[in-house]
Design a binder for these strands. Structure first.
Lengths: 205, 205
DNA sequence: CTCTGTGAAACACTTCACAGCG
DNA sequence: CGCTGTGAAGTGTTTCACAGAG
């Protein structure tokens, strides 16, 4: 039997962070769907439909209570407590990510980097320890982090995804320019500069 | 009257770069839809449907001619000649992007950075000149680049998008954590770390 | 009277399944 | 016979439009 009580569409999940940001930027205590819509760049009916999945509690004639709605969305996105993030690969990108101050503000906590190069292991990068890549699977299995960010060369990305998903990690952000098939139950989001530019190239002129 | 001859679905455009990469990685001269599908992590029917929008020329019983197909996809994505890219914002991210070697390999050419800080203007970053931000609109209008990458603080992102689209730029990659509404006819793709992590947080456990 | 929540319609995208070409 | 190309069916998402709560 399938679980189907709270089937929130992927498209909706993808927009909730945007709504959350709008809510954080306003100073009013109540906000209507069309105000959120304008700020988020979508249709107001879309906002109402999306928020209705939260078992929503807007007030007709008024709108949504900002702090209540923030709490609801944060809860749904699993942002109630701190979310721990591991960075795989301590090269240029991995180090830049480790130093990114935005993590804390958004409730994420970097718990370490993993690298193959033993000369890097044991050092710290922006205050974060660099661990040997051999320890990755065990640490993942022990539940030391919830989300993994892959910042390795493309050749090894698929292997890392396999290890992580074996160890029970369900959320992976992949910055390697490689197409990796997500094992079922695992969400892999790939962000690649060349891919983005190629898509944009289609839409020019 | 609307142009409708070649309405290629956005979802298809988003997958073409992946197919292109598979084609670049194979050493065979012919390839079937299910082979592409396996490599790209999608269904074979999806590949055939997507490729059929290219006015496709597979050979029944055989598959697709790799070099022919590469040429077709490149052409459709507008990658036939070099595509010029400007980087707006010469801070950490902008500088890192300017130094990213992957541009050339994928047929993109960085033509310069733009920054508000006059102390940076006139310097070069990884061989790229830094121009004053005032010149952005004129340079864009003069057609000096096809794609703009926004690597500025969030506060100024919306204004930059407005200037660029005024000047006729149709393709924008936005790394600022800001929701910008794309003027019609302009494609804006936003990539933001916090948003990605928040989405992934939903799918953990 | 305003603004939510939601059936129902419209639209977009994916998958099935098979006719038919090479 | 193998594999493409595509009608048709299925699924997911957006938009319309309005009943009804506050």
């Amino acid at each position: 039997m399938e679980e189907m009580e709270r089937a929130i569409p992927r498209a909706t999940v993808g927009r909730l962070p945007r709504y959350l940001r709008c809510l954080e930027e306003t100073d009013r205590s109540t906000i209507s769907s069309s105000e959120i819509a304008t700020a988020a760049g979508v249709e107001s009916a879309q906002v109402r439909r999306d928020l209705s999945y939260l078992g929503s509690i807007g007030t007709r004639g008024v709108g949504y209570d900002v702090s209540r709605l923030r709490a609801q969305i944060s809860l749904l996105l699993g942002l109630a407590g701190p979310v721990r993030v591991a960075i795989i690969g301590a090269g240029n990108l991995g180090q830049a990510l480790a130093g990114y101050a935005g993590f804390g503000a958004a409730g994420f906590e970097v718990v370490g980097l993993y690298d193959k190069d033993l000369r890097k292991v044991g050092r710290t990068v922006h205050g974060q320890p660099v661990h040997p890549i051999d320890r990755l699977e065990a640490d993942a299995g022990a539940g030391l982090f919830e989300i993994a960010i892959i910042a390795t060369p493309a050749e090894v990305a698929a292997g890392i995804v396999a290890k992580l998903s074996n160890a029970g990690v369900r959320s992976i952000l992949n910055f390697a320019p490689a197409t990796v098939k997500a094992p079922s139950g695992v969400e892999v989001r790939t962000v690649d500069l060349s891919t983005e530019l190629q898509i944009l190239s289609f839409y020019r002129r």
